[in-house]
Amino acid sequence: MVAPLIDIQDISFEYEETKALDHISMKVEEGDFLAILGPNGSGKSTLLKIMLGLIKPSKGKIELFGVDSKSFKNREWIGYVSQKSNSFNSGFPATVKEVVAGGLVKKTGLFHRMPKKTYEQVVEALEAVSMEAFIDRSISELSGGQQQRIFIARALIAKPKVLILDEPTVGIDHENVQAFYDMLARLNQDKNITMVLVTHDVDTVTDRITHVACLNQTIHFHGYKEQLHTMSDEKREAWYGHSVRKIHHIGGSHT
């Protein structure tokens, strides 16, 4: 049997006083298109950061591609688009081309210069997000939604096997959100890139995803989206509180 790409084993995490994750276990298999859903502050971003090795869980362990994350070396297999790229340094003097090529940083090791065909790879990655016309523009002169697409291209350029996206469509207009999820679905089906997506656009993603995880400190549900309707009302209430109605119809349940 092939090891799951991401195997989270009984993980807990707390920020100084706040408990964020409580005994989470979850597997992501190759080819999955997983949507992680949950209200604000339910620990979604925290869980992604643990998958990425940005923060260390206080309990439990995590295996990536069958290897303990502590000794996992192939980080370039895992692409990442952070929530509203707030970490990026706005006003930075760099072109779109330079930013996207930055996604190859781990692939081209120390001492290696960027390969000749970098330019073609940058163009290809930009085409995937329909931003190739902006290749020589300055990153700080783009709108928030355009920047977000550039960051997706930066994640794609290294040809990752898994793409981890934290609310990637924040700041992208309605029509482009549709196109964006179509693009993710294509990458998932044609290129077999496994997707782990945190989102609040439940209605839009339903048709494209294969799996759902309902998170609120603990996992309230994880499985095929078709099985979500088997989740009891009490469980839904515990997971999402009163705003639960909005997501009732995933998996073909009642409204």
């Binding site: 940005l54 980080r75 970490s87 340094n89 940083v105």
Partner: peptide
């Protein structure tokens, strides 16, 4: 990469 986006740099390992 580090100067541009610290979190991304760390996520890339």
């Amino acid at each position: 990469v580090l100067s541009f986006d610290d979190e991304y740099a760390r996520a890339s390992g």
